[in-house]
Amino acid sequence: MNLLEFLNRFFGRDNGASKDVAKERLRLVLVHDRVNISPQVVEALKEDLISVINKYMEIDQASLEVSLNSSDGTMALVANIPVLGIRRGA
């Protein structure tokens, strides 16, 4: 631990307790472990989502993210899909 780190800790400015990082990483990895779903299936789901949404909207396919998440014991499929524009008259 260098002096700066020490002072930060001493004055309570270190807000990144490493156990919180551990907990959050575990929480996410366990969601995937528990559903036992292969990355290939997630990838296929992603491609199907793109083809459906693409009919109605122009989306940024490169930065699309699909992941499983959980909070309070319920699981959610979280998709973050940046929309570039709406296809009129589709």
Partner: peptide, 16 residues
Amino acid sequence: MVKKGDMMSMEDIIEI
């Protein structure tokens, strides 16, 4: 280490 927040506590692990 638990006290310093650098190790998961038993409560953390049981919760997970």
